[in-house]
Amino acid sequence: MPEQLMQQIVNGLLIGFMYALIAIGLTLIWGVMNIVNFAHGDFLMVGMFTSFWLYTLYGLDPLFSIPICTLLLFVMGLLIYRFIVSKVMAGPMLAQLVVTFGVSIFISNLAVYWWSPDFRLIAKPLLSGTWDISGVQLSIPKTVASIGSIVTSLFVFLFLKKTKTGKAILATEMDREAALLMGINTERINSLSFGMGAALVGIAGAFLSTYYYIYPQVGGVFGTIAFCVVALGGFGSISGAFIAGILVGLVQTLGGFFFDPSYKYAIVFMIYLITVWIRPQGLLGW
């Protein structure tokens, strides 16, 4: 029993770190622009397919395709912001809501058209198998992805706190008009954070592709959980998203283990509802 419990805690942490990494990009975009990026899950899918195709066509392992995924998604995010999202930023709230939704539908259907709805896995990734640590099975690719998630989150956190651009992003997040008055080019900050948000989920996609199957609709399931994580952690809070991601992962596996697995998502969303009830701004939101 303690061995099984340890196993579930480990599993919860491993999936939680992945949720956290996916959610960080989303919370950044949300925080800075007050825009719900419904296409976030689809960005993840593009990241996963990028590393899949780099592997299939050029034999490049997902671990090494991380920089390419990051760059590609950054550029994609930038372009989508410049040519689509920025056009409706001044428009009504509903237009802002609908635009990323449209982008989401467009991207996932384009993926079905180009790559067919089939399920794909990276056949022989560099990382595979499990470590057996006194009876507890530790998946190697998931562990490496978790380390990647911690490093990336730390990097984003430090970037926002220590660099001038990072501080400008935080300032825009807190008060757009004040930031504008202080001479911050908020339009540039917008496109930068949209690009960064996309790039971060690109990293998540590359890591996820080492152990998860890839198909055009994969973004849907992870996207929904990412929204829950962001809302739980507090809109725009990087550390909040990180903690909430791990929390959701742990609650999901332990809840499923102690009660009945069919309740696991109900428990996750119940905790979310309770949090919102007590602290509407989320755990670390302001």
Binding site: Q4, Q8, N11, G12, G220, V221, Q252, G255, G256, P261
Partner: peptide, 16 residues
């Protein structure tokens, strides 16, 4: 054991 088909992680089910 029952579970939602679109689950992202099923380690707790397999644990059970």
């Amino acid at each position: 054991v029952s579970y939602p088909a679109n689950a992202t992680d099923v380690t707790s089910e397999v644990g059970t």
